[in-house]
Design a protein around this nucleic acid. Structure first.
Lengths: 230, 230
DNA sequence: AATTTTTAGTGTAAAAATTACGCAAACAAT
DNA sequence: ATTGTTTGCGTAATTTTTACACTAAAAATT
């Protein structure tokens, strides 16, 4: 029998933090899941996450669990909703502060930790543990809203990318199609892209221009109150 | 000495729900605060809120506490952020799921419950208990974002209102000034306003047209994917 | 080797949305 | 009586958004 050393005058729920990690494979948005090794929901897929320690914030917890379970270090996570349905965990009353982050697929090394981690395309995601199906739906909605106002999409691309890759990303997230020329014009007019290398003189038409995201320009524009929109 | 009947193997934080309630007095945005009757922060002002019961969700808790402390019944609250800093409550580790709602000033009756409740104009809000100053800042930002995309503002006005009152509301929330004619045109073009009563024939110029918010039209437009913006 | 398909780059005209702006009548305050 | 504030109303100029076609190079197919 285990000791139950932490006693309170009133019942306390347990608190967890979960992480919805989005990636991009060039065509589809993917989400990073881990396969549960223990009950409940043993064998089912779920988001990385776990119980909050008494001396860490929800965000610190999310980042710690993420590293422990997938090897991802120093990931900027952002909380998006707290789920508190009464029976969402069969063990005891658990509320979870759900976070999301955007990560390049390449950042997840296939180490020990990440043994059971896998990137699922959005249309291949199986039925998840706990209420994680619901959490995913909410996260996707939040991602769509967010990408319209902040250039978070760049966190999903390699440092240097082509305009077509960027367009594919936006189309994958928003599930719409853009006219290529209008997308080019709009993106370039925003002024947050820099050509990665001067286009060589001998560049053929077929060789696309490479861009990188210009943090400095973005910070500058943001301060003046600027709006990214699609 | 009190009994400590609820024991766990690991430490559990306490969980509360707090409510940032916004109102509008015709000129300024106001926020509903209650004066704390007990320690900690006895005598200081704070948001209505309190400890979550083990068999209620965070939202249910927010609504229950709101009614208990201010008499406001059946208020549609929406969670906007969970605050989990380690020392935000001197008693024990407490995380709070913060909610906000928009309410007409008139809905708060001066009953027993609300004895210590008071509507503060935003520029008169005193230094608050706990981390409620921070919570308020976050709530105001969220309100500004939200008002741009959903017509939540109407929840703050009487059922029937003039265009000028509506403009004052938007200007108070967003802290900007609009051109009166452009605001009129934009609002009317959205199609979510109905004239409350046909303007009497003898109406003088000086008698403003009264409008009401048209829920049906709004639901219709929303379904087609429509965007309210300012 | 020839043919077909795919991709990248580029610009403009039309339509729609946004902005700036003035006036006359009614009422209120002085 | 005078002054200042409030309401209703509409248009012209500007800006933004949208729709849309061709060429050359490379890759894939035959």
């Amino acid at each position: 029998m285990c000791e139950q050393n932490f006693c309170y005058r009133y019942p306390h729920p347990a608190v967890t933090a979960d992480c919805v990690i989005f990636g991009f494979d060039g065509v589809s948005i993917r989400v990073l899941l881990i396969q549960r090794g223990i009950e409940p929901f043993k064998g089912r897929w779920a988001f990385p996450g776990g119980f909050m320690k008494i001396n860490e914030t929800a965000e610190e917890c999310a980042r710690r669990e993420l590293e422990e379970e997938t090897g991802l270090k120093n990931t900027a996570v952002e909380q998006f909703h707290t789920f508190s349905d009464i029976n969402r965990d069969p063990r005891e009353r658990v509320i979870t502060v759900a976070h999301y982050a955007l990560v390049r697929l390449s950042e997840v090394k296939g180490g020990d930790d990440a043994a059971s981690a896998h990137w699922f395309a959005m249309d291949e995601v199986p039925s998840l543990a706990f209420d994680h199906d619901l959490i995913l739906r909410v996260a996707v909605n939040r991602l769509k809203e967010r990408i319209c106002f902040e250039p978070i999409g760049f966190e999903l691309l390699p440092e240097v990318f082509t305009m077509t890759e960027l367009q594919n990303l936006y189309e994958a997230i928003l599930e719409v199609k853009f006219d290529r020329r209008n997308f080019y014009n709009k993106m370039l007019k925003l002024g947050i892209l820099t050509e990665a290398e001067p286009r060589p003189a001998n560049a053929s038409r077929r060789t696309p221009t490479k861009y990188r995201f210009n943090d400095g320009k973005y910070a500058e524009l943001k301060q003046k109150g600027f709006r990214l929109e699609f």
